[in-house]
Every structure is written in structure tokens, then in C-alpha cells.
Design a protein around this nucleic acid. Structure first.
Lengths: 137, 137
DNA sequence: CTATTAGTCTACTTTATGGTAGTATTTAAA
DNA sequence: TTTAAATACTACCATAAAGTAGACTAATAG
């Protein structure tokens, strides 16, 4: 299990925006603060704006900030915005049709971890992350 | 979360060998029975032989069979033999150093699902899969 | 000897991901 | 109204990993 780099970046950026939400931040600042590739960031942030997680204002003094309050942004919302497929939903052996009535050989064993991951992604919000304290981004 | 196709193939083949362990089976039979690409299978099986999960005998009447009893083959053994990195062990945000004393923002949230996956991979054996009944391979 | 079967080596194709470049457009401060 | 700061859009390139296929070699039972 892992996230794509893009998703990792997104989580880190959004966390940063939440932690420093007194003001908006330009892509350049995010680039420098988090050490992420500038051009890549612009592409990604554009996507997050389209998906409604981030608001952008152009021009001088413009920048990016969260579009919702942090307790309204769940990890699964971020994954979805990035377009990361929710891998844990698929059959772990790759079968198209795999459910309780027609299970693959691993169906039952995979069910508990799957449920756990699903819960984590749907209940964890940006907000709850931060409360951890000033962890690294 | 998902396995690579190679790992999926391996689990399915090994399960097949276990279910039909009265005799050995040629790559060609496995290819036809499971619908997996022949050439890819030969490469993969050679690897599993090297790693000690499968025994092979050449020549007429030769073929492949399990090298150990099925209750001695855990899912994590298969992953390791295939060389699939144990992704769940890595930091979910991709940081090199991420542990309890120096955690990433998601460290705590990821811990429970991670433990669950680890348990599943280390406690599930080929044997326990089969008992499910004649599920599809 | 010969048919059968695994093993090796090599090279191609596909897919996913990560990253770059250039240009156009918008905004607000000066 | 000018202009610099900043985003928006579009397209492309690089790379690695995964998956596939072919041709040749080696072993073995009968």
C-alpha cells in the first residue's frame, strides 16, 4: 500500500495550507517551503482548484488557500481529487467480479484490512492530522 | 492496495498446485488451466523454484509441484519470493525516516490498517485459503 | 534416440508516473 | 493605465516497471 507521489504531494501541500491559513500562499512559496517541483505543483494545484478543494486568486497578492474548512476535507476526498484509484476497493487478486457470492480465494482474508483502510480514509480529515502536532511535511 | 499481476499469478498458481497436489503439472497445463501467458509463467515459475517454494523436474513426466506443505507457505513468503516490495512497511507519505519518534503527519492514522495488513500477510497460508472451498482461480 | 519439459537470455511493448516547457490570461498595486 | 505577480492551459518528454514473446539450451524418462 502506498500513495502515488502526486497524492503524497497533495496531502503535504494541503496540510501546509491548513497550518498556515492566516493567509494565502503562492505556488512559488509552496515550492520553496516543501521542496516540491514548481511546475509539477502548478499542474497539481490547478487540478485541486477544479475539484473544489482549493481556491486560487490570481494576480498580485494572489495565491492558494483551502476552499473548505479542514474538518471537511477527508483523505478520500484528496485521493479522489487527484484521481488516484481507490485500490483497496478492487479485488486483491485482480478479478473483475469478486464479491461475497462469487469470491476469490483471498476475499475473506482481505476483508478486514480493507475495511480498516476504508475507515481510515473516510474518517481522517486534514484537521485531525494537524492535531498530531508539528510533524514534518 | 493491490498486488502486482505477477504476485496475483503466483498466488493463483500456487493455490492450483496445492489443490491438485496428487501429481505435478507442466507449465503448459498451468497456462491452459489458469489462462495465464505461457512465457511469463515459465519465467515466474523458475523464480519460485529458485526461492524454494516450488520443485521442478525436467523431462518426460516432469513438471512443477509445491516444495513445502501448504501450511508452511504464507502470503508474505510468496510476496518475498516474487520480489514484491512490502509497500505497507514504508511511510505512507514517502518519507525515508518515519517512526514513532519522528513521525509524518499520517503516521498514527496509518498504524492500525498497517498492522492489519501485516497480520493478514503473515498468518494467511496457502492452506487456509483453500479451506474456503472451491473458489475461483 | 526422441519427445517432453524446464531454464536462460534477450529484446520488445505497454502502462503508469513523474517531470518540463512555453504561452496565454487574470488581477491588483503602483 | 501600466506592469509585475501569479495562475491557467496545453502539450510533450523521460523513465522505470511490468508484462509479453521468441529462440535457444539443458535435462530426463522411456
Amino acid at each position: 500500500m502506498h500513495f502515488s507521489k502526486t497524492t503524497e504531494y497533495a496531502i503535504r501541500v494541503l496540510s501546509y495550507l491548513h497550518r498556515h491559513n492566516e493567509t494565502s500562499h503562492s505556488v512559488n512559496v509552496l515550492h520553496q517551503e516543501l521542496g516540491l517541483p514548481y511546475k509539477y505543483l502548478t499542474k497539481m494545484m490547478t487540478e485541486l482548484v477544479k475539484k473544489g478543494l482549493v481556491t486560487a486568486s490570481r494576480g498580485r497578492e494572489g495565491g492558494l488557500s483551502l476552499a473548505k474548512s479542514a474538518d471537511q476535507i477527508r483523505l478520500c476526498d484528496i485521493l479522489e481529487a487527484i484521481g488516484e484509484p481507490l485500490e483497496y476497493e478492487r479485488c486483491i487478486l485482480g478479478f473483475e467480479k469478486c464479491d461475497a457470492s462469487n469470491p476469490c480465494a483471498l476475499h475473506d482474508q482481505w476483508a478486514p484490512p480493507k475495511a480498516m483502510i476504508e475507515e481510515m480514509l473516510t474518517t481522517t480529515t486534514l484537521d485531525s492530522l494537524i492535531h498530531n502536532k508539528e510533524t514534518k511535511l
